[in-house]
Design a binder for these strands. Structure first.
Length: 501
RNA sequence: GCGCCGGUAGCUCAGGGGACAGAGCGGCGGACUUCUAAUCCGCGGGUCGGAGGUUCGAAUCCUCCCCGGCGCACCA
């Protein structure tokens, strides 16, 4: 596990001690409410317990003093030596800094996007990709072995309608009822042959461009082959000439039909069961599904599928994100691929830029419904904080460019400036922020943190010179550490860290 | 009706038991002979949807209510 200077300090005070950065500088560099939390269990007065903690803290190296405040907070004031050491560990960890929080490391599959190949990737699916991919990146950084998979629903009625729609366009006819329309159908009609492979190619290219890289692609048509051998293993019954899975035995709110009564064909839940089985057979410890909020009913039935097959349902994890609504000049428009009434990912990227698009779609928490005004998106993207963060990275790159080959050396620090201490404290937060974001599946914490880092750096940069200062070697080290952290933070949300802007 | 997710500054949203609630955008006013001004500094702006409850302490947890989004198919 990579180093975390703050946790290391906290651990010296006890296993239950967690350090936080107080919002007020009078409250020290770090503070803990451990005395308040533990007072009840220990049957001690909070301030008495706080006094013990404070005494223990003052005995530690680099702790200048510890103060008891309010009902029982302990505020720590640290010497420069602590900051210098913290910076040293950050630099020593390099790209691995903040990683390795996984315990234990697992093989995890993140299945995401999985939109029907009946049209290009829309902004709605892009949110799935931006969110899912960032979670995957966080899990990787935490030390898990992660694979990303896309599941194609390639055997349903939607596909027939899609092919029929292209056929109709080739004949110059109107699309069939419930068919698809839009410019992309007309384009596909220009080329001979099955439009599905062409559509899939386009989807895969769009996602690759969006920096969502898939390791594997699953097809429902192939997964379905596994259904028949699984049927005996699960709890089923016949009613009304239909075969049902007794999912209510495993927490679902109603049983699910498996095989259609009229023609004997498999219904989607049959494929879902086979797919869950397929995932675990391939050796994943955990199967993460990234689904839009309109699929929240899936949670119970996917877990039920795992349970019926004899797997621990906790190994199925469903990440839901709220939907994307499009507005145009304030008026809402419904997204529908069939009507061609959508904004495609590629258009969105063209309009707002790749980095701004990724940032935008992950910046908001998954539980928050997202409204995108098509008319304002491009204009607003100019003010996207992503550029503020990237600029900090580019500024540092500029400094380092000017002194290529020059030494940086943390130990050359003399008295640290307040802004230097603030910046180091910010960098020291990174392991905690990243571990928390990974555990909570909440990548939106990363952009928020990155802004804070950029904030602290820009302030430092404005106030103090790096080159030709008597602190040059130390400040170069500080710059390099900041650059590493910003680059990693941006990478975790799929955004580039440019060296020039 | 039942279930899931929201309701925090003019707007878009962070925060999700701790010390006076944060940011961006928008508004107003300042700062470049300097390693990138895509920057920095200052000012203004809040019944954290409402009501109860738990707690030393609630925007945060519990209950009820109001408003909005999304579900509740032999479609996927």
């Amino acid at each position: 596990m990579a180093a975390d200077p703050v946790s290391a300090l906290a651990a010296q005070l006890g296993p239950e001690v967690v350090l936080e950065r107080p919002s007020e500088s009078e409250h020290g560099d770090y503070a803990t409410n451990a005395a308040l939390r533990l007072a009840g269990v220990r049957r001690m007065a909070p301030r008495e317990l706080a006094a013990e903690l404070a005494a223990a803290a003052e005995a530690l190296p680099h702790v200048a003093r510890a103060e008891i405040a309010g009902p029982g907070f302990v505020n720590l004031f640290l010497e420069d030596g602590w900051f210098v050491e913290a910076l040293g560990t950050i630099l020593a960890d390099g790209d691995a800094y903040g990683g390795g929080s996984a315990q234990p490391a697992q093989r995890i599959q993140v299945e995401m996007v999985s939109a029907n190949p009946t049209g290009p990737i829309t902004v709605a699916s892009a949110r799935n990709g931006a969110y899912g991919d960032s979670v995957a990146r966080l899990l990787e950084h935490a030390g898990h072995d992660v694979e990303r998979e896309y599941y194609y629903n390639d055997s349903g009625a939607q596909m027939d309608r899609f092919r029929a729609s292209v056929e109709a366009a080739r004949r110059g006819d109107e699309p069939p009822a419930d068919g698809y329309q839009g410019a992309y159908i007309a384009e596909l009609a220009q080329v001979r042959g099955d439009p599905v492979p062409a559509m899939r190619k386009q989807i895969e290219d769009s996602l690759e461009r969006f920096r969502v890289h898939f390791d594997s692609w699953a097809n429902q048509s192939e997964i379905e082959h596994g259904v028949s051998e699984l049927l005996p293993r699960i709890d089923t019954y016949e009613a009304d000439g239909t075969l049902w899975a007794r999912t209510t035995e495993h927490g679902d709110d109603k049983d699910r039909p498996l095989i259609r009564s009229s023609d004997g064909s498999y219904l989607y839940y049959a494929a879902d069961i086979a797919y869950v089985h397929d995932k675990f057979t391939r050796g994943f410890d955990k199967a993460i599904y990234v689904l839009g909020a309109d699929h929240h009913g899936y949670v119970a039935r996917l877990k039920a599928a795992a349970a019926m097959l004899g797997y621990d349902p906790a190994r199925v994890e469903v990440l839901l994100y709220q939907l994307v609504h499009l507005t145009k000049g304030g008026e809402s428009t419904k997204m529908s691929k069939r009507r061609g009434d959508v904004v495609f990912l590629d258009e969105f990227i063209d309009e707002v830029g790749l980095d701004a698009a990724r940032w935008y779609l992950v910046n908001r928490g998954p539980d928050q419904t997202m409204e995108i005004d098509v008319d304002l998106a491009a204009e607003k993207s100019q003010k996207n904080p992503v550029y503020y963060v990237q600029y900090a990275h580019a500024r540092i790159a500029g400094i380092l460019r000017n002194v290529e080959g020059a030494r940086d050396d943390v130990s050359q620090a003399t008295a640290l400036e307040p802004l230097e201490r603030e910046l180091i404290k910010r960098l020291a937060e990174f392991p905690g922020v990243v571990a928390d974001a990974a555990a909570k599946r909440g990548p939106q914490a990363i952009p928020a943190y990155a802004i804070r880092v950029a904030d602290d750096f820009h302030r430092f940069y404005h106030e103090h010179r790096v080159l030709e200062s008597d602190q040059q070697e130390f400040r170069l080290a500080l710059c390099r550490a900041t650059q590493t952290v910003i680059a990693k933070a941006l990478d975790l949300v799929g955004v580039a860290a440019p060296h020039r802007m």
